[in-house]
Design a protein around this nucleic acid. Structure first.
Lengths: 260, 260
DNA sequence: AAGCAAATCAATCAACTGATTGAAGCAAAC
DNA sequence: GTTTGCTTCAATCAGTTGATTGATTTGCTT
């Protein structure tokens, strides 16, 4: 029985329709979000029957989980492989190399095409703001371990920062990574319309991106004085422009006296 | 007729149920996303009738637009006010002050409570990855102008960077901001479980956050040499661990030979 | 008190949702 | 050639979706 199933899987690798469903779901979820897509739309694009989703997976939610698992598993595996290789040596790696090890698998490798990378990037981003506990658990299962490893490694490179400082900077880094994976092509959208930047050139992206992340980790410890000076400067400018200052912070929203 | 409506609006400011619907929609959309919430759930929480949504707005989509407009308008207004005040003086402001002007309105002011800030932060984040052209247009309408102003101002502070470098760093900054607005309380989720950090203390957050953003803009221009060295280091470590290198980049995903 | 428009309501619409069923298709095993 | 078991399919389920209707209530003006 197991042999027969193996033979089947050989002739029709990994189950044709199963993969087609996963691909279609990934594409459509990336575009419209999990709740924005119906099983019928997915199965229509996958040229499959609605029941096939319940046959291969157990329902819509499990299909989403399978979509995430398929890519995230590989991506995180590459991430861990690189971090472990870097930290295996006698002396700690360079900050840039460690950052690259964490960041590159999501931006370049693990994907056959830029479209696939973009798609999963969007799914990943959508997933990252999910509030449902079950889905958050899926996230944690995949992404917690490499985060812990990265923090351990970066603490050896920059020992002068507290754990909280490092956590903060790591948090910021993850934020940029998710945003970057999900929003390719949006860099030039803010400024002028005549920009020739190609957002799909991930190598160029990494060239800009990695040094900035390194700068984040190399920034001096957070200083109250620096921050207060900035607040004072903004308040001074606002006062000169005859506007209310920041500190009193009078509520500017008049619309929701009933809210909360 | 106009007078009567004005009098009405005075006695029942801005329409009680209209505001209740907006509040309920904001809360639920923040939690479950636009497609994850039905009009019935919204109107149930707002103690209103389903038809009220179509009466005050025109439909579900327009309700979402109203939810975004209400907050984003105020937030972006504060942002512009601060940037303009800072750039009005004879000499350019400090980098930290400019960043604070852009970042603070979304994190502290404009919101009566931390819950409201969190809620709109989530809505904002969900909106930022929307692919629907109409919704993207709403985004642009609100957030393009302050971005242009910021880039103009920061170009005067850091003239040695090319426009593309500045755009990149600004893009990264926006990414961190959206992530931070949407994910309060997630900083400590990665590392140990015994962390006492209070993610709702936005002042502490800003103290960590603003200097890091300044470090991003102050980082030296992107260097191919630095990047290539990092790539070489990762590849070397991988080779030492007897694993395939990055450069050949053999496809690691075996699952989607049919995709794209 | 009457008039009137703005606001609210219950009831209903067709369309669509995820899920389930049992029959039919199909290739390999015997 | 028949059996076996994985796969696919059309048909259907009850429940929900956004939207609309027309009647009813509300509160201000005259």
């Amino acid at each position: 029985m197991a042999a027969r199933r193996a033979a089947k899987a050989e002739s029709r690798p990994e189950g044709d329709t199963r993969t087609r469903i996963l691909d279609a779901a990934e594409r459509l979820i990336a575009e419209h979000g999990f709740h924005g897509v119906s099983l019928r739309e997915i199965t229509a694009e996958a040229r499959a029957n609605t029941a096939a989703v319940h046959y291969y997976f157990r329902g819509k939610e499990e299909l989403l989980e399978a979509v995430v698992d398929r890519r995230a598993g590989i991506m995180v595996g590459e991430r861990l492989k690189r971090i472990n290789a870097l930290t295996a040596g006698p002396q700690p790696p360079s900050l840039e190399a460690l950052i690259l090890a964490y960041v590159a698998p999501g931006l370049t490798e693990c994907f056959d095409s830029g479209d696939l990378r973009k798609q999963f990037g969007r799914v990943r981003a959508r997933f990252s703001q999910e509030t449902d506990p079950a889905m958050r658990a899926i996230m944690r299962r995949h992404f917690k371990e490499p985060g812990v490893q990265f923090l351990k490694a970066v603490a050896k490179i920059i020992p002068q920062l507290t754990r909280r400082e490092l956590q903060w900077r790591f948090h910021i880094m993850v934020g940029t990574l998710i945003y970057l994976m999900a929003q390719p092509g949006k860099v030039q959208a803010v400024d002028g319309e005549t920009d020739t930047y190609d957002p799909d050139d991930v190598n160029e992206a990494l060239r800009y991106y990695v040094p900035m992340l390194a700068a984040i980790f190399r920034a001096p410890p957070s200083s109250v004085a620096v921050f207060d000076a900035a607040v004072a400067e903004v308040n001074g400018a606002l006062a000169r422009a005859s506007a209310p200052a920041i500190e009193p912070a009078t509520p500017k929203v008049t619309d929701d006296s009933t809210a909360t």
